[in-house]
Design a protein around this nucleic acid. Sequence first.
DNA 1: GTCTATACCCTGATAGAC
DNA 2: GTCTATCAGGGTATAGAC
Lengths: 201, 201
Amino acid sequence: MSKLQQTRRTQAERTRASKEKIIQAASEFFAQQGYRGAKMADIAKAANLTEPGLLHHFASKTHLLMAVLAERDRVDRERFGPSLLGEMGNPLSSLQKLVEYNETVPGLVQLFTILVAESIQEQHPAHNFFMQRYQNGREQDIEVLRQGQAQGEIRSDIPAEDLTIMLYAMMDGLQIQWLFEPEKIDMARIFGQFVRLLRGE
Amino acid sequence: MSKLQQTRRTQAERTRASKEKIIQAASEFFAQQGYRGAKMADIAKAANLTEPGLLHHFASKTHLLMAVLAERDRVDRERFGPSLLGEMGNPLSSLQKLVEYNETVPGLVQLFTILVAESIQEQHPAHNFFMQRYQNGREQDIEVLRQGQAQGEIRSDIPAEDLTIMLYAMMDGLQIQWLFEPEKIDMARIFGQFVRLLRGE
DNA sequence: GTCTATACCCTGATAGAC
DNA sequence: GTCTATCAGGGTATAGAC
């Protein structure tokens, strides 16, 4: 391996390390302040960079936001499978696990809760990202739900389409109240009650 | 009545009219852009005022926000009673009516959905307002739910405290997906399904 | 009560050196 | 790849006239 190649590889790794650090910092500030409220200067500082230094890696604030969201999706897909409902035979158990996991990462939950609401506006840079995210999520879950219904594990008097919408709604809604009062709202336990309802118990 | 008094009354009425116009305009912009995204200049213009003209009535943007929220609460209390669960004997019906009503006022729903999420941050000027709003809402509803449970109209295997949390969660969560895709998400119908679940049907 | 003019800060982004 | 310096624009708020 030539010295030139070595140098190249080292720089590439540095770049990747810098980008990761920036995304990490950006996630925290977006979570705390939302997209609009977060300041590039603060993010840069937290990543040990100046603002132009940051902008060398991400051409604009919008680009940075999209990178944060893409990275988040990547990590989540690694942690959980494509469908959040879990393997058959125990249909809603992995959603329950997700809610329990979420209680350990309030920063991430806040990131998505604030950004989702902010991005309801059509001009928001993440608008399509989140709309797609709901569409994909519901689409992937619907098949698993149908199978659960066929096997009598999930009540069949509500269409599977409606069930997917309700599941995401309950998760999102619980997160809001939980973020306001983490001690008071036992998000995972209450979601568990809801799951029991859907099982028809 | 002296001429002086007449003049005073006319001016007072003008002031009130101006304030109402401002609040109306501010509601629309806060709903469209959130608190941070809304610009005082735009609000002023929509109310046929300049910015300093607006600031004569509301000392700061924060003051204006609180006025918008207070006004909203006032109107809602007029329209619905203090408790949103409705009269006994038909416990969850008025919540159902509220959701149906909300489908006719997407602007208002968006106002609250975006502001609630934005105000999760503790420094947000509306943080305490919304936390209190959830607390009051749940507190007022809990008694009615308990009575419904005692009369066998609502399933009793879930504590009334949890039911109040779930009701607000489902409403909030449905609103998010509905605001993204109003045509696709039949908010009222799905909330109806949920209510049926809680009735134990 | 409403205006014109303006102060002043904040923020995202660019130019260009190293 | 990162910096210093700087810009252009937008945003809230104030001073003071009418």
